[in-house]
Amino acid sequence: MKPPAFDYLRAESIAGALSAFQEKDGDAVYLAGGHSVVPSLNLRLQAPSSLIDISAIDTLSGISRHDGWLRIGAMTRHVDVLKNPEIGKHAPLFQAAAPHVAHPAIRNRGTIGGSLSLADPASEFPAVALALRAEMEVVNPQGLRRVPADDFFIDIFETDMESGEILQAVWIPPVQAGQVHAFDELARRQGDYAMVGVAISGILLAGILSEIRIAFLSVGNKPTRAVAAEAALIGLPVNAAAIAVAQEELEKDLDPPEDPQLPPAARKHMARVLLGRTLTTLGASA
């Protein structure tokens, strides 16, 4: 299990990283935390001629607030997502999801930008970004662009980013009055890939849900909104009757692929159970 040989260069700036990628004619991979790239190299699932280490670029680091939005630099490690007080205050759904991301030592190296740009349909942060209406700050030689999470995740391991672009940060909208959240997942063992997971963000004022976004992970090729279940909940209190209707409606939202490990019917059943649990938590949190 050794990767094929490659060149390594450490970029000092975004401009340097982007031009290095162009010089290699795209036969290069950006290296941040390396916790998806390096296993894929070890397993020889990819064999680029160069690795461009972007971990030292300062615009990728840091957690800051601008006009109420929270900007989380792409190099922010999972352990910092878990522990950072700013994230706890302004994006607590990320903090609720972080303990489910792999194991402690992986969380010490893996990065939020790596997780979002890899877009593994079983990973937690893409679903959280979708539930929170986060926006991705993507950089290319022409400049910056912001891509809403709804348009960012396209397919399995596929995002709106073009080859050579770099995800520089994720932006979280300001917390609103009455904003509530819940996250949970079902996995065979702590830290394993989830069989089903769900991230929910909503607005619950005077006991009535006025807005809700429910994003499932591990139910298809990308993080998946449960729009029918969401619609069933709007304008109602989050009580047992409303939850039961949302669970019924979920049938319309999910169409999991055939999987010898977990048949679609079983996955949908687990999603219904999980939705019931997380909505109950959500209702109790206001």
Binding site: M1, Y8, G34, H35, V38, P39, N42, L43, L51, V79, H103, P104, A105, I106, N108, R109
Partner: peptide, 24 residues
């Protein structure tokens, strides 16, 4: 495992545990 699953290769990198198989 050399893919970050088994934890046999953990070392401390600036004081925090990391998989030495996944760090170049």
């Amino acid at each position: 495992c050399e893919m970050g699953a088994c934890g046999a290769c953990l070392v401390l990198l600036t004081g925090t545990p990391v998989h030495a198989c996944l760090v170049l």
